[in-house]
Design a protein around this nucleic acid. Sequence first.
DNA 1: TGTTGTTAGTTACAAAATCAACTATTATCC
DNA 2: GGATAATAGTTGATTTTGTAACTAACAACA
Lengths: 145, 145
Amino acid sequence: MSEKSDFALQDFLPYLLNQAAEESSLAFQQVYKGRYGMLRTEWRVLFHLGMHGELTATEIGARARIHKTKISRAVQRLAERRFLSRQRNVRDRRSERLALTPAGEAAYRDLRDVAREYDARIAAQFTTGEVALLRMMLKRLAGMD
Amino acid sequence: MSEKSDFALQDFLPYLLNQAAEESSLAFQQVYKGRYGMLRTEWRVLFHLGMHGELTATEIGARARIHKTKISRAVQRLAERRFLSRQRNVRDRRSERLALTPAGEAAYRDLRDVAREYDARIAAQFTTGEVALLRMMLKRLAGMD
DNA sequence: TGTTGTTAGTTACAAAATCAACTATTATCC
DNA sequence: GGATAATAGTTGATTTTGTAACTAACAACA
């Protein structure tokens, strides 16, 4: 048997990060998909609006690092389903001010609570110090610091 | 301005993990895509074969946690481009023994070296202890322990 | 033996992501 | 003011992924 193993894929950081990301997103995905029929980009847009109130598509894209076509389609779907409302900006009529509808607010609060619990359950696997370090390192790696 | 911010998306672990994974994969992706026209699943299959020698599609799927349809398509493309060869298993003619061709071996060694350097560059942002802890935590989160 | 169930892998169709080109509006600067 | 460039967002074509159904080969057991 040629067990060469001259490289340890299971230690390669981008690989590990992807596997951990995928695994850790799974259960949460089932919630926003199952309860609200949302896609990944859609809950992210929902959260940004829930956290910051009115924003334009470009502002959301900049904060979340999502490409404008993805945002555009997510906004469309969220608007169709009445989770958000769009209103042309008077100052710059190219852009729209996006805001959550009451239904959007409700979905946001629901998912936010799920996210909090979910995050806590993940964090509970480690010590407080470990989790703090993890978040710090991930932020640095994500270019979010 | 309604800066509610009653939730910190930038601290939500699944979100952070995804952002870090995406960011940290980018430059490596450009290498395997640019040099060999490979997709994510393809370099993973390549690496598993490079590390372990002959494997069946199912074995690769089990190790890498990739669905069989993805594997099937990745194997097809890698075979078309002569990076691997397929040979029906005599004992069980449902499965195929997959192995890298010389071209596949060369691509593997090249990308493996890139991955090593790349991993080192990421790790260099932190102390040795921090990186060891990070890998440990990611493995646990990925269910790889 | 033959019926039933399981496993390996492929294929077809639908859903989603990617990339480039496009419209509409605003900004720049001669 | 008017030409040119830049920006906000959308759309269409292509690629990639996901889901389910499928074929072929093997296993179990009456």
